[in-house]
Amino acid sequence: MELSDIRREYTRGGLRRKDLQTDPIDQFDVWMQQAIAAKLIDPTAMTVATVDSTGQPFQRIVLLKDVSKDGFVFYTNLGSRKAKHIEENSKVSIHFPWNPIERQVHITGTAEKLTAMENMKYFASRPKESQIAAIASKQSSRISARGILEGKFLELKKKFEKGEVPIPSFWGGYRVRHDSVEFWQGGENRLHDRFLYIKEGENWEIERLAP
Rank of each mutant, 00 (worst) to 15 (best):
I135D: 09
G109A: 14
A116R: 09
Q27F: 07
P168D: 11
G187W: 02
W204L: 13
V51F: 09
E118M: 10
W31Q: 03
R12I: 03
P57G: 11
V105R: 01
G13K: 03
W171I: 12
A83T: 07
R126C: 08
F123A: 06
G79T: 12
L114T: 13
V30W: 08
R12Q: 11
G151V: 08
R126E: 01
G13F: 02
R126A: 06
P211I: 00
P127D: 10
W98D: 01
E2C: 04
F195R: 11
Y122F: 13
V30N: 08
Q185K: 03
F74I: 04
T54R: 03
P97R: 04
D29V: 09
E150G: 13
E202N: 15
P211C: 08
D42E: 09
K82Q: 05
L78K: 06
A111V: 11
E205N: 15
K113L: 14
W98L: 00
E188Y: 02
K128M: 09
I198R: 14
I86V: 08
G172D: 03
Q104V: 02
I86Y: 03
G13L: 02
T110F: 10
I86L: 03
R17L: 09
W98P: 01
D42Y: 04
A38D: 00
Y122K: 07
K162N: 15
E161C: 07
P127T: 07
R146Y: 11
R17M: 08
T44Q: 01
K82R: 05
D52W: 05
R103I: 02
F195H: 10
M46A: 04
G14K: 03
I206D: 09
E161H: 12
I61K: 08
V176R: 06
F74Y: 08
E155C: 13
P57F: 13
S130I: 11
E9P: 02
G71W: 10
G13P: 03
L40M: 01
S137Y: 10
K138I: 13
S180W: 11
G55S: 04
L3Y: 10
K91S: 15
A133M: 12
I41R: 07
K91L: 15
K113S: 14
A45K: 00
K18P: 08
V105I: 07
A49N: 06
K152C: 11
R81L: 06
M117L: 12
S90K: 14
T115L: 08
N77G: 05
D23F: 12
